Computed example of a mutant assay.
Amino acid sequence: MDPQQRRGRGAVSNRSGRFEAQDRLTESDGWDMEEDLPQIRTEVREEVARSFITYNKSPDLPFDRSINPYRGCEHGCIYCFARPTHAYLGLSPGLDFETRLTARINGAEVLEKELRARKYRVAPIAIGTNTDPYQPVEHDRGITRACLEVLRDYRHPVAIVTKGAGILRDLDILSDMAGQGLCSVGISVTTLDPALSRRMEPRVPGPAKRLQVIRALSEAGIPVRIMTSPIVPGLTDTEVEALLEAGREAGARAASWIMLRLPLEVAPLVEEWLRTHVPDRADKVLNRLREMHGGQLYDAQWGRRMRGEGVYAKMIGARFDHAARRLGFETQSIPLRTDLFAYPIRKGDQLSLF
């Protein structure tokens, strides 16, 4: 696709998803004439959700439930492992994922209904595990904030993952919940190089801004984790120690890492990006990934998909562990309280006798 059309976006193409019978390619019509091609704009559709909490049984994850206020993500991180989910909507995991978004407008209402169900048993809810809850559309829609208001009222524990500076708008809710041991936040910082960040994650606040967010959250009493994720072999792997040092200086108390993951359509999208933006590094990145996954670009097996295997993967893990210990980071999930969960009193509710 013409670079001017996709300016400010992460993906290079808009190839169809794996369920489509036909692929879409942009080709010249043969006329030697300049055309004023329109830049791709973001579209937001609305969805009335019937359910909102998603459950998982993955042994790789420190949570068993999550919520996602939006489908698709305008941040446009080329490496996003959630891109293949857009194929279920009949859309492309490429540029469609970044530009054709869905806002789940009744999310807070459905969330409250699910929390009040008799069979519900409290455990931390994760937000931002699929798409970022503080992507630009949240500034207008406010669905994430509405969900946090519900969780605050029910004194329900929540763990948030984001790259967005918009989280600072909700400091009032988050600091209140953190004071009760009900909230933690993970901020993903992939690189300290602003130029690389702008190409790799084009609509995300720059690295310096994300470190400022860590500092602001920490100063507000909210426990923060710096997530050096994903580590891109041959591209950002030299920055592991520097990222951790910057996060610690900004006030992060915990740290974690994940190796670059290329499930399904993400693999060809990332390869296109590498050959377009860093052609001298492309083969090195791809070959490192193959080394860690038995000759494949990705292995979806639990226990291997997040970190990979082999000498290189062990070396990255050892470097991270050494730096984390030196800097005094916690590497386990920040514990959150579940014993405070209670239904708030609503108008018309039957009051307890005692």
Score class of each variant (00 low, 15 high):
2 D>T: 02
3 P>V: 07
7 R>W: 15
10 G>V: 15
18 R>G: 11
18 R>V: 11
21 A>L: 13
23 D>T: 09
32 D>R: 01
36 D>N: 08
36 D>K: 07
39 Q>K: 11
41 R>G: 06
41 R>C: 03
42 T>I: 15
48 V>I: 03
48 V>L: 05
59 P>D: 00
64 D>W: 06
73 C>R: 03
82 A>Q: 07
83 R>F: 05
84 P>M: 01
91 L>Q: 10
98 E>G: 13
99 T>E: 10
99 T>P: 01
108 A>Q: 04
109 E>W: 07
111 L>S: 02
115 L>I: 09
121 R>Q: 14
122 V>I: 15
133 P>V: 00
135 Q>W: 10
137 V>F: 02
138 E>C: 03
144 T>F: 07
148 L>R: 12
153 D>H: 05
160 I>R: 10
160 I>M: 07
162 T>I: 03
165 A>L: 06
170 D>K: 11
181 G>K: 08
184 S>R: 15
189 V>A: 03
199 R>Y: 00
209 K>A: 11
209 K>W: 10
213 V>A: 11
219 E>H: 01
220 A>C: 10
225 R>Y: 12
233 P>A: 09
234 G>R: 08
237 D>W: 12
241 E>R: 15
247 G>D: 14
251 G>K: 10
254 A>P: 10
255 A>I: 00
258 I>S: 06
260 L>T: 04
261 R>H: 08
268 P>L: 11
268 P>V: 09
272 E>I: 10
272 E>P: 13
278 V>C: 05
278 V>F: 04
283 D>I: 15
285 V>L: 07
291 E>G: 02
292 M>D: 12
295 G>H: 08
300 A>Y: 11
301 Q>C: 05
302 W>T: 12
303 G>C: 01
307 R>F: 10
317 G>L: 01
320 F>H: 01
321 D>Y: 00
322 H>R: 05
323 A>N: 01
325 R>H: 00
325 R>V: 01
327 L>W: 04
329 F>G: 04
329 F>R: 06
331 T>R: 00
332 Q>I: 02
334 I>C: 00
337 R>A: 03
340 L>E: 11
341 F>W: 09
347 K>P: 01
